[in-house]
């Protein structure tokens, strides 16, 4: 179903795709951490970080603007930072009298607002690059190699597997509701808001029971193949020389970006 469109992985034979998933996870987190550490208004460093991102896009054979085009998921959240523009610290730039309240944007506030936005926007792009170049199961393996608790990674593996099955089921439920949401001329359609929420709740209950029973059947299928309570998996990843090299070379690159940011 169209749910597969959610899977952002793009298969290419690039150096970035071949990179060990552990290294990619560490680099992504390192990059986001580096963004968080850069002081507000270090535009040069932000630009350097973006160049690094563009270059990585190119290395992954995705085309320069690939992650850029997909990076607007976090944008609605920017509303939360708008109030930073009117920070009390800094010099006032203007005074907007809205009648009931006077808004005073400050230079500090504006720098802060755009710094937050840029940080967020760069970080989202790197996260997108990670899932575009890494199959999700490999990502799970990476977390296992990085000593994430086995219980959690296994739950996540199950979640990933059944996400598609259950969202399909949720869509079928919603389609069935849609198909019966008829209306007659002269009658008010759709019932009350409360009623609509209640129907949705019952659909959730229905979905819960189907999922619960499915987990029983899966458990049986696992028992039938020798499951004894401990999940075992084979992780075929081994760090190559090139993986170590990439890891070590990226550290000075991130340090350089920090340097640009702090000593401009």
């Amino acid at each position: 179903m169209h749910i597969h469109a959610f899977d952002q992985f793009r298969a290419h034979a690039s150096a970035l795709h071949r990179l060990d998933p552990r290294v990619k996870v560490l680099l992504t987190v390192g990059y986001i951490l580096s963004n968080a550490l850069l002081p507000d208004g270090s535009w040069l460093a932000f630009a350097a970080a973006w160049l690094l991102l563009l270059w990585s896009n190119e290395r992954a054979h995705l085309g320069l603007g690939y992650t850029f085009k997909r990076s607007f998921v976090a944008f609605p959240f920017a509303i939360a930072a708008i109030s930073a523009i009117f920070s009390p610290s800094g010099n006032s730039l203007a005074e907007w009298n809205l009648g009931f309240v006077t808004l005073v944007p400050t230079d500090f506030g504006v720098v802060r607002f755009f710094s937050i936005l840029v940080r967020s926007w760069l970080s989202v792009q790197m996260a997108i690059l990670l899932v575009t170049t890494t199959q999700f199961p490999d990502l799970i393996h990476a977390f296992e190699h990085l000593k994430a608790p086995r219980t959690l990674t296994t739950i996540i593996a199950f979640l990933y597997r059944y996400l598609f099955v259950l969202t399909d089921e949720a869509y079928r439920l919603m389609r069935a509701r849609e198909a019966r949401s008829a209306g007659l001329p002269g009658f008010k359609r759709g019932g009350s808001l409360f009623w609509r929420a209640k129907i949705t709740g019952e659909m959730a209950g229905q979905l819960f029971l189907r999922s619960y029973e499915r987990s029983d059947r899966i458990y049986n299928a696992m028992l039938a193949r020798g499951y004894t309570g401990h999940i075992r998996t084979l992780n075929p990843h081994t760090m190559q020389h090139s993986d170590w090299l990439t890891l070590f070379f990226s550290i000075p690159v991130l340090l350089l970006i920090q340097l640009i940011g702090w000593y401009r």
């Binding site: 593996a157 899966i218 049986n220 299928a221 696992m222 039938a224 499951y227 004894t228 998996t233 084979l234």
Partner: peptide, 29 residues
Amino acid sequence: ALVGVVFQNPDDQLFSPTVFDDVAFGPLH
């Protein structure tokens, strides 16, 4: 190990993210 049961709904039988993981599950255990 001697009796292999294949359940009706393959979405219940195939519970791992990749095909390899699923086929390896039995031998691993």
